[in-house]
């Protein structure tokens, strides 16, 4: 029976630089990714959504024939004379800017709140309240857009007009975007941001929750074993390890924020302008397409313009969604299949 004697004792201090063969970790991971991709392409189920998107794009292209695709199409001006008295200008960038002005803050708010919700459910809350919070956030996802919209202009708009807007301006009026005129009836960008925030939260919270939950327990325990407090483990281990999933959540939320039409159309005040501040009415690309659709049946050139807008919206939504799927990796599949753990 051997004892301590036969151990090769390394020299004190710097050990001998014996080359250690690198583990084929990365290559293995890549190979797995490639085969998964191949599996996806081979699967007819995967081709179905691809085909649908291509079909939608093709129909939109055909319908619009890109009739307005001049330099002014990418501009910031919109003017349409339905009776044909003056030439029309369809600048899509105006609506893209508006979409960003509304979706950006909504996404920032939703991401922050979702992160708080996800951290509480995964790390801090005991199982029962945690499950309740998850249930409640998921419930928000089940409310139809139009209900948010009606709630927005019937209940929230008066409150925003008389209280929320003046209060916010009172405190933050010195900040650019927070001062200036209010929207008398309460509808406007701020209300749209508020409604969108609530609508985005269930998506971002669910993806964030799953990615935090999927952080290996090993990593968490390793952090704790190094003398980190639970909060330090959240900040320095969980958030770091789940970073991709968290960014994925943000992109999926952005897709929702940019694409939402009905609820936004009902509360944003539908004014075709870049809003001079957060309170005034504006319009997002998606909501504009939605509420102009009926008129477009009267005016063929408006219809082609809207179809081109829809193409732009489709492109933006696709890019955002792909970025989200890419960033969140497996977590996105959880959402798509509607499953997830527990």
């Amino acid at each position: 029976m051997d004892r301590r004697e036969p151990i090769p004792r390394p020299a004190d201090g710097a050990s001998t630089p014996t080359p250690v063969p690198a583990l084929p970790n990365r290559r293995a991971a890549n190979g797995e990714g490639r085969s998964r991709l191949r599996g996806w392409l081979a699967s007819p189920v995967a081709l179905l959504p691809l085909g649908l998107v291509a079909l939608v794009a093709a129909v939109l292209l055909w319908e619009s024939r890109l009739a307005n695709l001049g330099p002014s199409f990418w501009g910031l001006n919109y003017f349409f004379d339905p009776s044909g008295g003056a030439p029309s200008v369809f600048g899509v960038s105006l609506f893209l800017v508006d979409s960003a002005i509304v979706a950006g803050p909504a996404l920032a708010l939703a991401s922050g709140l979702s992160l708080a919700i996800a951290i509480s459910t995964v790390v801090y809350l005991p199982p029962a309240p945690s499950r309740l919070l998850t249930l409640l956030t998921n419930l928000l996802a089940g409310i139809p857009s139009v209900v948010y919209g009606i709630w927005g202009y019937v209940v929230l708009a008066p409150y925003f007009g008389t209280t929320a807007q003046p209060t916010l301006r009172g405190f933050l009026g010195w900040l650019p975007g927070f001062g200036g005129p209010l929207s008398a009836g309460g509808v406007g960008s701020l209300l749209a941001i508020f409604i969108l925030t609530i609508m985005v939260i269930p998506i971002t919270a669910a993806v964030m929750r799953e990615s935090l939950r999927n952080v290996p327990n090993d990593l968490v325990e390793a952090g704790l074993a190094l003398g980190a407090t639970p909060w330090e483990v959240v900040r320095r281990v969980r958030l770091r390890a789940a970073r991709r999933g968290l960014w994925g959540a943000v992109f999926l939320g952005l897709g929702r924020a940019i694409g939402e039409s009905v609820a936004v159309a009902m509360v944003i005040g539908a004014s075709i302008q870049i809003p001079p501040n957060l309170y005034t009415p504006s319009t997002t690309l998606a909501s504009f397409i939605f509420y102009q659709l009926d008129s477009a049946f009267f005016y063929p050139n408006l219809l082609t313009a809207l179809t081109e807008f829809a193409l732009v919206l489709l492109a933006v939504a696709l890019v955002v969604n792909l970025l989200g799927q890419r960033a969140s990796g497996a977590d996105a599949t959880v959402i798509v299949t509607g499953g997830g753990r527990g």
Binding site: P216, D218, L219, E221, A222, G223, L224, A225, L226, G227, A228, T229, V237, R240, A241
Partner: peptide, 20 residues
């Protein structure tokens, strides 16, 4: 317990390195 763990460290069966 945080202070206990600072005095008494632990290493696990499988190497657990942080992704950094």
């Amino acid at each position: 317990p945080v202070l206990v763990r600072q005095k008494i460290g632990m290493v696990f069966q499988r190497p657990v390195v942080f992704p950094m």
